[in-house]
Amino acid sequence: MTQARAAWLALGGVLVAAVLGGVFALVSRGEPYEYSGYAIENSELALDIQLTDGAGEPFVLSDRMTPATAVYFGYTHCPDVCPLTMLELAAARDALPEERRDDLQVLMVTVDPERDTPEVMDTYVSHFDDSFIGLSGTPDGVREVMQEWGIVAFREEGGSDRSYFMSHPSTVSVIGADGRLRLLIPTGLTPEAIAADLLQVMDAS
């Protein structure tokens, strides 16, 4: 029994080594592009979850794929890092070659659907760029997206029913045309670095 188990473990080890070796060989062939953000190896995401866009219409990402989709999970009562991230994404879009700008769609999904109605989200994202899409939904719908995508957000202690804060992810998720998660963009990168990463995702999928 233990021998069989050891054999399986050894086989597993060999397989892992073979896969890693293969990946390494693939990556080291030619000069690989170095992302400024964190590259993700083809993580599949659930894309068929229904949210609500600014017009109150259903929004299903799988129906709306573009060469690159940047998704930010935040909330509109966030005064500092959410608007900064929106500014960064707007500047990054402007830094793209003009003919590639429509290959990018920027989505902001609220982690606070109780306060962020579709109308509020629409007003919010339009402040930064007319092309940005603000998404809300039922609390259950938003929770489902967050669970499926591994997004953590929770209400901070303190504050009142009307005035409270949320913790939320610090990165923007970038999805390729094939619907796979390709990249996480942290806040603080230059618009040029983000644009270069986005172009890479557009061209890679």
Binding site: D80, V81, G158, S167, H168, T187
Partner: peptide, 14 residues
């Protein structure tokens, strides 16, 4: 308030 990043989460506290 301060904004702080903890475990990949953006948090704000008084």
């Amino acid at each position: 308030h301060e904004t702080a990043m903890e475990d990949g989460q953006m948090r704000m506290r008084q």
